[in-house]
Design a protein around this nucleic acid. Structure first.
Lengths: 341, 341
DNA sequence: TCCGAACATGTTACCGGTAACATCGCAGCA
DNA sequence: TGCTGCGATGTTACCGGTAACATGTTCGGA
């Protein structure tokens, strides 16, 4: 520190250049440097220029940990999602991360897999970093978690699901409704026999349940309901169709819990000599690239994951900037009929 | 604060329960609480039990921001990748995040897209959070960035590429070599005419260059080399094949810069009536699910993304726990011949 | 019986910023 | 000319932990 004008390398992270070093070089108080970085409009042009020059010369990188402790704002959002292996989650995460980044926030990613305890543990862990906001997947929390979240006093967005009593902000849709809509869609095309291949995650199960309930309401028949591991890949769809193949009626309408599952089923149907759509009608979920770009494309339910991410970021920012009312954004879902039905 | 035994709700985040509150309730010094949480083996069983009870009773959530400032360890790693939309990146990111999580580190995700300036900006931004380590994509940095990184005095892992002078730790492979290997593979099968569909990212271009160079060395012919946007999806592969279809020789060997591209090409070949593999041999890259689970599966180059993530985490942890030597891990690549060649 | 490790716990000072308040200088105005 | 108000900048104290050192306690061996 003998020569505060020179960044003394090899002393520690960033050569220990701190705000006081910059202030000394620029001939101002540390607080003024802080103002240049955080509220530049409260500093005169001349002073700001001097400070910026000093920052440049020293290669100063502000320490957001110190700033966060002092200001009680971490400028960080934690996002807890089951996985990023599926477009269902990496799309919103990607868009959300970009949008929050543009607003000066970083996103800490926590992957919870598909076990509820793991999710709670991840939430607990990230709360220790005092995020300014939280993005969670799904809308159903244990009472203990609700308490923890309300104690945290930060905005929370829950995505990909709806609930009558969300924690805070909600950006999602009703999965049961989607299942029912798919059943109606099939029924309208004259189907009476149905099957489902569903991944073992709560939302896929809700879709499947909505589907089966509507089938029952219509007085039609579920010939098979087969469970797959979560997250389900194309291969699981293939194995799934093979598992239920002998139960298929003359003409069956199959609902896959994701486009991966649906595509796997379509591929396997080809191998087994089951004609799509004549013997087997297929509808997927998610509008993944493959549903459109496969030859031919197949019917699916579109829900815009990017839109969910964008909307989640927007709502969170509104909330953090003073909007006090928790909000609920219902994202539309729409069946895109293609060649598989 | 009149009743330190009760968490006084509605005062601020976590009802302002801090380590001194826990200490007071447990009848110990704050430092002892800190020890219970960080180095439990240096605390007696009895004391630890009392402290844990107090933590439980108050619902104390430690503040890692304060802890990080004091200890100069953030227990956080920043990961900068172009996108998580491709298995190429979300696989290593997912595995890396899990592995670091098991070691007590959180991962901050920064998405850089495919513009070099964006990457540098992201790195600068995350360094302000004083990560204990850094995961970067690719191995080529500007001099300014190298300086910044060495000033930061933290371990850096660069993945998915190799370089003669890596910043620090390297976990990757030579993309040019992969391209050459694919050319050799095709040549060994009797091919003499080749084409490439390549995404415009540095590593895809390196693969394609290695491919074209080897083709030239063999005295064979590149009939087409078509550039796609990055990241390239199945649709881009379809469009790409359509764009070069009229230039295809009687029998051509096509190298796609990813399995998405390759699959798109295969699908489009079907539409155009080009027989695979008789008229068009196809090799992809990445061993994505689709390359194995398509019917039939297609030839690809396998590089284990999960292994890259695992190895990156391992190397980083070794380094942070005292290993001083920068290391270089070469990840194997292997051509998996399937029905498309 | 006494001494000194080894262990358990407490005390002090500091990590690097920023909120809140204090101060200063100067223009506008009576 | 003196006062007021406001923009620009400085000062003080604190955010909530933990490193480093100090102190107290226990127990085995000479």
């Amino acid at each position: 520190m003998e020569h505060p004008t020179l960044p003394s390398r090899s002393r520690g992270p960033f050569a220990s250049v701190k705000i006081t070093d910059v202030a000394a070089l620029a001939g101002v108080a540390p607080m003024t440097v802080s103002r240049v970085l955080n509220t530049p409009d409260r500093v005169s042009q001349l002073t700001a220029a001097k400070v910026r020059a000093a920052i440049e010369q020293l290669g100063y990188v502000p320490n957001l940990i110190a700033g966060g402790l002092s200001s009680r704002r971490s400028r960080m959002i934690a996002a807890v999602v089951p996985t990023i292996a599926s477009p269902m989650f990496h799309e919103p995460v990607q868009v959300f991360t970009d949008a929050m980044g543009a607003a000066g926030y970083h996103v800490m990613l926590a992957l919870s897999g598909y076990e509820p305890e793991a999710e709670d543990a991840q939430i607990r862990a990230v709360l220790a970093r005092r995020p300014d906001g939280l993005l969670l997947t799904g809308a159903h929390r244990t009472p203990a978690m609700r308490l923890l979240l309300s104690d945290a006093q930060i905005p929370v967005v829950e995505i990909w699901d709806v609930s009558d009593s969300p924690t805070d902000i909600l950006v999602g849709f009703d999965h049961g409704e989607v299942g029912a809509a798919v059943a109606d869609f099939f029924a309208a095309a004259g189907h009476t026999h149905y099957a489902a291949l569903l991944a073992s995650d709560p939302r896929a199960m809700a879709r499947s349940q909505g589907f089966a309930q509507r089938v029952a309401q219509l007085g039609h028949v579920m010939v098979a309901e087969h469970r797959l591991p979560a997250p389900a890949a194309i291969r699981d769809g293939r194995l799934g169709l093979r598992a239920i193949a002998q139960r298929l009626a003359g003409r069956t309408a199959l609902f896959g819990s994701s486009d991966n599952v649906a595509y796997g089923a379509i591929l396997e149907a080809g191998v087994l000599g089951i004609a799509v759509p004549n013997q087997l009608s297929v509808c997927g979920f998610g509008d993944f690239d493959i549903s459109r770009d496969a030859e031919p494309g197949f019917t699916t339910v579109r829900v815009d994951g990017a839109e969910i991410g964008r909307s989640a970021a927007e709502q969170l920012l509104l909330r953090m900037n003073g909007a006090t009312k928790p909000n609920r954004v219902l994202v539309p879902h729409r069946i895109l009929p293609r060649a598989s039905t």
